[in-house]
């Protein structure tokens, strides 16, 4: 694999939040990479650090959070070394993001068209007329019905599915090399989710953007991603091509996650469960973070954390069983 093929590479990234109750180890040593045009799915449950990962990449952590260690190399450049001014040029331009709640991400007092036009003028220096034309193109591209009239709508006048189309149009406005989609369909009904996933697939082929798709829904990952990273309690526990992952999950947590998901058309009397709950990230346990819930726990697990172990077929797993 040529070096230039890799668009984004995280090395040993640790993002901590400093709160009154103590330090939250939200992301605690994360390594992964995204190739140009690749779709990487990141799955995990609430609090596993998947959203904090995306916020770390974009450096949108707010006052309490900080990347305290590691490198985030984007196209050969460490994003953590950039000035705020330089970072602002990357955000929305080369890396853009879509969020879970599309309606809360749009400014309620401006018309939809104005918000996209503004982004185009700031990032690409288009004139008003050019930006206007490009906005109509983009809204047509994302399949918003009657785009010329819709540009004059306010966010509250459109449905959640349409708002997500507008967000995608906005995210694609500057032809980003990387699109981070954080639970892009979680707030939508299934028939609308199907429309949006379909749109994302279609656009991926048209514009060849790399996508980091963050979701808790294994179905969405199975359908969209080429490679998948499973996170648990601030760590990557497994990394694999999507077919391999679902065919033979290696990490006990991934196995539990897949077994506890009810699958349409496949009724079982009793669902598998993962006993217990996610450990607090204020004081993460020593050793493997999944040990307290793991059926295969050995003495070694509670003493020493396993490294990411390389398996056949581009797979990595953080578990002493291998």
């Amino acid at each position: 694999m040529a070096q230039s093929d890799v668009l984004l590479k995280l090395k040993g990234v640790k993002t901590y939040f400093f709160t009154d109750e103590g330090t939250v180890h939200a992301v605690d040593g994360l390594d992964f990479q995204v190739r140009r045009g690749e779709t990487l799915g990141i799955v995990g449950e609430s609090g596993c650090g998947k959203s904090v990962t995306s916020m770390s990449i974009l450096r949108l952590l707010g006052k309490t959070g900080k990347v305290i260690e590691g490198e985030i190399m984007f196209d050969g450049e460490n994003l953590l070394d950039l000035s705020e001014e330089e970072m602002r040029k990357i955000r929305g331009n080369r890396i853009s993001m879509i969020f879970q709640q599309p309606t809360t991400c749009l400014n309620p007092v401006f018309r939809i068209g104005e918000q996209i036009i503004e982004a185009l003028q700031i990032h690409q220096g288009l004139s008003g007329e050019e930006a206007n034309k490009r906005t109509i193109e983009l809204l047509t591209l994302v399949g918003l019905p009657d785009p010329v009239r819709r540009m004059r709508s306010f966010p509250h006048e459109i449905s959640g599915g349409q708002a997500q189309r507008v967000m995608i149009a906005m995210a694609l406005a500057c032809n980003p090399e990387l699109l981070i989609a954080d639970e892009p369909t979680t707030a939508l009904d299934v028939t609308i989710q199907a429309q949006i996933l379909d749109l994302m697939r279609e656009l991926r082929e048209k514009v060849n953007t790399a996508i980091i798709l963050i979701t808790h829904d294994l179905g969405v990952v199975a359908e969209m991603a080429e490679n998948v990273m499973v996170m648990y309690a601030g760590r990557a526990v497994e990394y694999a091509p999507v077919h391999a992952l679902f065919e033979a999950p290696k990490h006990p947590y991934t196995q539990g996650l897949i077994a506890s998901t009810p699958v349409l058309g496949n009724v079982r009397d009793e669902l598998e469960t993962i006993p217990g709950q996610v450990p607090s990230l204020l004081n993460p346990p020593a050793g493997c973070r999944f040990a307290s819930r793991c059926a295969h726990r050995m003495d070694q697990c509670t003493q020493e954390e396993p490294p990411l172990i390389k398996l056949e077929g581009d797979r990595l797993v953080r578990c002493w069983l291998y």
Partner: peptide
């Protein structure tokens, strides 16, 4: 039928004919 076909299944080997409904409720 549309509702069932719209649900993403956690199995990448399944390729289904998806019925995608147009528009919103």
């Amino acid at each position: 039928k549309a509702l069932m076909s719209a649900i993403p299944l956690p199995d990448p080997t399944i390729k289904r004919d998806r019925i995608i409904l147009e528009g919103d409720v």
